[in-house]
Nucleic acid binder design. Structure first.
Length: 606
RNA sequence: GCCUCGGUAGCUCAGUUGGAUAGAGCAACGGCCUUCUAAGCCGUAGGUCAUGGGUUCGAGCCCCGUCCGGGGUACCA
């Protein structure tokens, strides 16, 4: 797939060509055209050439056949651009051949720059705050959270690489009825069980009681219905839910015993989350807690009410009328004065903009909340925050299992910890079967298995367009061949192996001979190397780790063909060998950089 | 109902401002390790790009209709 990347305005040679094409049209056909009308793209592999100008748009000026027009332009460009050394015409396509020396200089540039493709941020650079992860503290993280965390982390890396200052933030949903449910279940049936006494990870332990609550609650409902109560009444009056509500009320009244239990159980969960976050390799610069920000949000809503921005119903509930914006009415405070999801998000946003001078706020949250963020933005704007309209919801698709959606309470989830362990297990097994890594110290081998396993998982998730829903089949998704993370890591390891051998043989890289005639395959590779810069930029503009993943795969696939067909160290022509080494080293660097943007580590051998 | 996103090979996914014969991986089949790592490379097979119209020199991509699917539309988060 040679054509999935935009090159326009990215490659200097491309700019020159556009310019000269305009000039040619002007001189040959006495017509002025806008720059946008010139289409320059990478020549498809089946055809000879490097860059292609599409001449169809010029036909109405040239009043000649496509072939003749292309000939005219080709001759003009050949004479007026040094870097072009040949051209051919196929129908309305003018294929231009760029000289070896141009490609060599481009490679040289990429090779010499240790931060190739990355822009540095300064104190003046835009500050972007990215919210991601946002867990509830009543259950462990699952596959859905994994996609969120990986996307969020990668997005931050990509934004940094594009010269932004980035603050990674997390909002922890640590209060509310769902938290009280697991607390209540633990009180009722826990017998004082702790992570220490049970040997269970804290988040899993709390999750167990959340599930238990639901089970008991459902039993109670069934019992009540059997004794003649209506279903709705039963749901409202089952002893467990009544008790949970009472617990929430106590929590809001700061009952010491309740607050104590809440702190204890949340503490268990945080410890568990820390382990999972660390395993995933994600982190945060600043963490906000809903238990703190919902108060700020409530105050803002009250202010809005006083200023007539919102209105109150007779039952005391507070609403926003969004019909003027083409939306509906939205509740902001319940009739009992307690706050809803929206309330805390208003407070969190305000707090963040107080804490930081934010140029861009990005929320990494699933697309099921598109409406929520549309409303949030409008509400903040109505409340007078000039940044309200500028919030950006990075909306990603859901992860589906072969049998449908994941539901925590019904146990149809793929647990994050389990999944990672399983992948490490498979990585270890595969590696041992292949007999790789023999002679490596145990802890180094273990670290390699971990990197490969995480590489497989992260790449699998990040390579798909964030906007789209994706399917995760636990049996089939654990793959280490083909378009996968390990395949890319493997290519990196191969290059490192070559470089080690080169060093052993005392081969030292020399400056490139700029007069060298570059062979077709090397030129193909150099062309892909150059694209890295524009891909990073494009990924930053479109907020898409998938672009990075697909590019790196494309590069690596091409390199493996080269590796198979040609020898690097055994090449007899010193200059050619030198070029191949420089190319391999540059490609390794890009693999490392690209993988870093995805939050994936590379391995020296595998 | 209304709003919104999607439908590309058996499966999972690419496919940039509309451009040449729609591409990968997996699965299937057949080749390639005395040669820098075979977690690799090469080949075969696999498509009415959901569907019907339209715009255009040119449509997987743009416009309209239809069918199918996801999500939203809660005093849940």
């Amino acid at each position: 797939m040679p054509r999935n990347f935009k090159i326009q305005d990215k490659m200097t040679i491309d700019l020159i060509i556009r310019d000269k094409v305009l000039e040619a049209v002007e001189k040959l056909y006495e017509q002025k055209m806008p720059v946008e009308s010139v289409q320059v793209q990478i020549t498809r592999k089946e055809f000879e050439g490097d860059l292609t100008v599409i001449v169809f748009p010029f036909l109405r000026f040239s009043k000649k056949s496509p072939e003749q027009t292309a000939e005219d332009l080709g001759n003009y460009l050949l004479q007026n651009i040094n870097e072009i050394d040949k051209f051919n015409v196929v129908k309305g396509f003018l294929n231009l051949g760029i000289s070896s020396s141009y490609w060599l200089s481009v490679l040289n540039n990429a090779y010499a720059n240790p931060d190739f493709g990355f822009k540095k941020a300064s104190d003046e650079s835009p500050l972007v705050m990215v919210e991601y992860s946002s867990p509830n503290t009543n259950k462990p993280l699952h596959l859905g959270h994994i996609r969120n965390n990986l996307l969020g982390y990668s997005l931050c890396e990509i934004l940094k690489a594009n010269g932004n200052r980035v603050v990674k933030t997390n909002i922890v949903n640590d209060r509310g009825i769902h938290i009280c449910k697991s607390m209540l279940a633990w009180q009722q049936w826990g017998n004082g069980e702790t992570p220490e006494s049970s040997g269970m990870k804290g988040d899993h332990l709390v999750g167990k009681y959340y599930v238990l609550f639901d089970k008991e609650y459902k039993k109670e409902i069934a019992g009540l219905v059997a004794s003649g109560m209506g279903n709705d009444d039963a749901e409202q009056n089952a002893p467990s839910i009544v008790a949970a509500r009472e617990l929430l009320r106590k929590w809001e009244n700061k009952d010491p015993e309740t607050i104590g239990l809440w702190k204890t159980m949340n503490g268990w969960v945080y410890k568990g989350f820390d382990v999972t976050y660390k395993k995933m390799g994600v982190d945060f610069d600043k963490i906000y807690y809903e238990s703190e920000t919902y108060i700020i949000g409530r105050d803002e809503v009250m202010r809005g009410l006083n200023e007539g921005i919102f209105y109150q119903k007779e039952d005391g509930s507070v609403w926003a009328d969004l019909t003027a914006d083409g939306l509906d009415h939205k509740i902001l405070l319940r009739s009992d004065g307690t706050s809803v999801y929206m309330t805390q998000d208003i407070g969190t946003a305000k707090e963040r903009f107080n804490d930081y001078t934010i140029d861009k706020m990005i929320y990494v949250v699933g697309n099921e909340q598109n409406y929520h963020f549309q409303v949030l933005s409008i509400l903040l704007d109505k409340l007078g925050f000039e940044w309200g309209k500028g919030l950006h919801h990075f909306s990603y698709g859901m992860v589906e299992l072969p049998n449908g959606k994941m539901k925590s309470r019904e146990g149809t989830v793929v647990d994050a910890d389990d999944l990672i362990e399983e992948m490490v297990h498979v990585a270890r097994k595969t590696s041992e079967e292949l007999g790789k890594l023999e002679g490596l110290p145990e802890h180094e081998a273990e670290e390699t298995f971990r990197l490969i396993a995480l590489g497989a998982l992260k790449y699998f998730i990040l390579k798909v367009d964030p906007k789209k829903n994706m399917l995760f089949n636990p049996e089939e998704s654990i793959d280490f061949n083909g378009n996968t993370g390990p395949f890319i890591q493997y290519t990196y390891a191969r290059i490192q192996s070559v470089l080690r051998k080169a060093a052993e043989q005392g081969i030292v890289l020399q400056p490139l001979d700029m007069n060298l005639d570059v062979a077709a395959k090397e030129q193909e590779l150099i062309k892909k190397v150059v694209l890295f810069e524009s891909v990073v930029e494009e990924a930053g503009n479109l907020y898409s780790p998938a672009l990075i993943a697909n590019y790196v795969y494309d590069l690596v696939k091409e390199f493996n063909q080269f590796y198979h067909d040609f020898s690097i160290l055994k090449e007899e022509n010193d200059q050619v060998r030198n070029l191949r080494l420089a190319l391999a080293e540059t490609i390794a660097k890009i693999i490392r950089s690209g993988m870093k943007l995805l939050g994936i580590g590379v391995v020296e051998r595998m």
